[in-house]
Amino acid sequence: MTNDARSEISLHINGTTHRLTVDNRRTLLDALREDTRHIGSKKGCDFGQCGACTVLVNGRRVVSCLTLAVAAEGAEVITVEGLAVNDELRPVQEAFVRLDGLQCGFCTSGQLCSAVGVLAEHAAGWPSAVTPDLSPDQPHRPLDADEVRERMSGNLCRCGAYPSIVRAVLEAAECEEVNR
């Protein structure tokens, strides 16, 4: 097999379609960063261990460093650049800034995409490893700090902004509850 096989693909990123010819080895992360200039997604490990590259693919959280670009063809990809609506920050982005849920900022794009995923997963009733009662007829419980810590643990932050991240996600959850 040649090491340099290429494919023509279409990627739908933040509502825009990009037609690309990519090396088949190209990850979604590199296609975002190098081919379509979505530099917000970061490469912290390229190994699926740090979460800095987290994006939403068809609404689900994925680590884009472990996703081949060719495998994302046709999917709806949302990156950190696509979280704001008409240049207006989402509540969770605004809360990250106000509560200082970041320091160096390198993990922040992944944290934010992950947080948006967490809010959707929780709203859809998905349990986590710390959800106390998994029986199907449980009433919807609001997110608490333990749930956020657990659900956000795929995103490492070496600066140690975790406590502020938890507060920011809880505030955003409250905001979304109110909006619903």
Partner: peptide, 21 residues
């Protein structure tokens, strides 16, 4: 005060050394 570059960092616009074309 919140970070001067806070908005850039939460919207993916802040540029790190590997981000400059």
């Amino acid at each position: 005060r919140t970070r001067v570059e806070g908005r850039d960092k939460v919207s993916g616009k802040a540029r790190y050394a590997g981000d400059i074309p």
